Amino acid sequence: MTLYIDADACPVKDEAIRVAERHQTRILLVCDGGLRRPNSQWAELVIVPEGADAADNWIAERIGPGDICVTADIPLADRCLKAGSRAIDPKGREFTPDNIGSTLATRNLMTDLRSAGTMEGGGGKPFTPRDRSEFLNGLERVFQAIKRGR
């Protein structure tokens, strides 16, 4: 089992590392630079070339069954699920085969509306301590489900 973290803009890197360390799981923080390697025997920093989707592509090409990806990127989460892994966002919501289709469709619709000028946008709500707590609980649930074979 490996925990992949789409690390460039991930607000819960430290929390994800703590949970993975507790489960003695390999951690790969994937980014295009600007991060320092975490002080953890379980963690590795993977620097990919700069470019659109370089980190996403690197993760999607390697992730597989039994692995987990932490990402806010819905298309990456979809690719991870198709590879047989699990995916969770920084607010603790797990992406599943049951919800990824509608989540991806909503994301695409909002992107289209913003690009057509129909809707102003950008940025989500501020990240809160409750979000951080929900992430910790959600990631722990995913680890436990994998260990139980679900």
Rank of each mutant, 00 (worst) to 15 (best):
Ile5Thr: 03
Asp6Leu: 00
Asp8His: 05
Cys10Asn: 08
Cys10Val: 10
Cys10Phe: 02
Ala16Met: 14
Ile17Thr: 14
Val19Arg: 06
Ala20Val: 00
Arg22Gly: 13
His23Leu: 07
Arg26Gln: 15
Leu28Gln: 13
Val30Ala: 03
Val30Ile: 08
Val30Gln: 05
Cys31Leu: 12
Cys31Ser: 14
Asp32Leu: 06
Asp32Phe: 11
Gly33Asn: 04
Gly34Thr: 10
Gly34Met: 13
Arg37Leu: 11
Arg37Tyr: 10
Pro38Tyr: 01
Pro38Asn: 00
Pro38Trp: 00
Ser40Asp: 03
Ser40Phe: 07
Gln41Lys: 11
Ala43Lys: 08
Leu45Arg: 07
Val46Gln: 13
Glu50Val: 10
Ala52His: 12
Ala54Cys: 09
Ala55Phe: 02
Asp56Ala: 10
Asp56Thr: 03
Trp58Pro: 11
Ala60Arg: 04
Ala60Met: 04
Arg62Cys: 00
Pro65His: 10
Pro65Tyr: 08
Gly66Ala: 09
Asp67Thr: 03
Asp67Gln: 03
Ile68Met: 01
Cys69Trp: 01
Thr71Met: 02
Ala72Ile: 07
Asp73Ile: 11
Asp73Ser: 09
Asp73Thr: 07
Pro75Ala: 04
Pro75Lys: 06
Arg79His: 05
Cys80Met: 12
Cys80Ala: 15
Leu81Lys: 02
Lys82Thr: 10
Lys82Arg: 15
Ile88Thr: 02
Pro90Gly: 02
Lys91Phe: 07
Gly92Arg: 00
Gly92Cys: 00
Gly92Gln: 00
Thr96Leu: 11
Thr96Ala: 06
Pro97Gln: 00
Pro97Phe: 02
Asp98Thr: 11
Asn99Arg: 02
Asn99Thr: 06
Ile100Gln: 00
Ile100Val: 00
Gly101Lys: 09
Thr103Met: 12
Thr106Met: 15
Leu109Ala: 13
Thr111Tyr: 12
Asp112Ile: 03
Arg114Pro: 09
Ala116Gly: 12
Ala116Gln: 11
Thr118Ile: 13
Thr118Asn: 07
Met119Arg: 12
Gly122Asp: 03
Gly122Met: 06
Gly122Phe: 04
Gly123Pro: 01
Gly124Gln: 04
Lys125Cys: 06
Lys125Ile: 05
Lys125Pro: 09
Pro126Val: 07
Phe127Lys: 03
Arg130His: 13
Asp131Met: 04
Phe135Leu: 08
Phe135Ala: 05
Leu136Thr: 12
Leu136Phe: 06
Gly138Trp: 04
Gly138Glu: 04
Arg141Tyr: 09
Arg141Ser: 15
Val142Leu: 05
Val142Tyr: 05
Phe143Glu: 10
Gln144Cys: 07
Ala145Val: 02
Ala145Asp: 10
Ala145Phe: 01
Ala145Tyr: 00
Ile146Gln: 08
Arg148Met: 09
Arg148Leu: 12
Arg148Lys: 10
